[in-house]
Design a binder for these strands. Sequence first.
DNA 1: ATGATTAATGACTAACCAGTCATTAAGAGA
DNA 2: TCTCTTAATGACTGGTTAGTCATTAATCAT
Lengths: 211, 211
Amino acid sequence: MNEPRYRRRKEDRPAEITAAAFEAFAENGYDATRVDDVARRAGVSKGLLYLYFKTKEELFKAVIRNFIMPMVDALKTEVESSELSAEAFLRGPFLDFAKRVPKSPAKILVRLLIAEGPKHPDLTAFYWDNVVSQGLSALSQIIEKGVRDGSFRQSALNDFPQLLLSPVMFSIVWSIVFQSKHALDTDKMLEGHIDMILRAIKRNDDQTGAA
Amino acid sequence: MNEPRYRRRKEDRPAEITAAAFEAFAENGYDATRVDDVARRAGVSKGLLYLYFKTKEELFKAVIRNFIMPMVDALKTEVESSELSAEAFLRGPFLDFAKRVPKSPAKILVRLLIAEGPKHPDLTAFYWDNVVSQGLSALSQIIEKGVRDGSFRQSALNDFPQLLLSPVMFSIVWSIVFQSKHALDTDKMLEGHIDMILRAIKRNDDQTGAA
DNA sequence: ATGATTAATGACTAACCAGTCATTAAGAGA
DNA sequence: TCTCTTAATGACTGGTTAGTCATTAATCAT
């Protein structure tokens, strides 16, 4: 009956607290999240939390780091190890990724970045270095590969790989803001987007396909 | 030397306060904005502010309404009064609009909507009714017009006019989060986007043009 | 066993801030 | 000029919360 009040598991604590904090920040954003609430979710006292994280802000940054790293690593390996043609990569792994993100909990990071980024320049810098610039250069590689082997023509995508990502971002924002009231079939939209892009940039060997 | 402490200009006050609040909310977001600060910016006491706006939240909503309404009205008139072909409209007024928004102060509203929307369902609903759904249906009209007169083929844009807007949203988010450190030529990107879209959806009478 | 070490607690405080209200003075009317 | 209405003030309060610290109890070393 008397649950052990003290557990003493120094190694696990930070990860447990970070996970709880992720939940809390995701639900409420930075300001509205109470440190007490994070501690309670982690089954830990506030004092202990402050033993591992000096301030609320440091905790916030730890959350971002912890949950972004794995995603980026996964994407990079996928890109680099793939032997698919550029088109096949866009229709396959890239589309999968694009469909997955707006449904994953990680979408919340976008909200946090937009909402809190301007107040935390170092966090934004971290995000840039570890996520955005790497993601964009991976996409550029794919596109250039397609151009080199003659299957894609030169297009705006060469200068702006962002255009591949913008509907993904849009899906995320939509799902955060409107999804509950105004469902959007993001999977279909993203498929349509890839179809359109490919129709625009493929050299005309054949000119069929896609709705 | 003794500036008049009391000015008594009942009619101007609400607009002055809303303008000050827009600045403050834009800089700091909702939670971090102090009502005292808004009052100071408006050159007014906090007590007076509470004479015109019952709560901070009501003030926030007034800000959104005040700054969104004119934009939407402008866009709607433009769409409805235009006699241009679908392609000309996309390359002209629509592209202008798309270029303008990410540079205007109104872009901040997107940040506020993403950050605070989930906590303010009625505000989100207002935004939907007055901005998003109207904007989308205007775009749908344009696209259908192009399809009807045979210049566009059926495409993903028929189901997802959002695809036209996603790079605009992307530009806004980029400019909020990264612009200071990593400039993006949003004008060029948006031009490239329209070029690609048109290449994808135009029926092949001619198949030349655009980089 | 027994002290030494340190993970963990939670009551406390110092600061902050949305919203109130008793008071002041500007302008309107007579 | 005097009175009445109301725009405008700003000190105050009640509630909230990030961060602290004196204390407690697991675990470890001997």
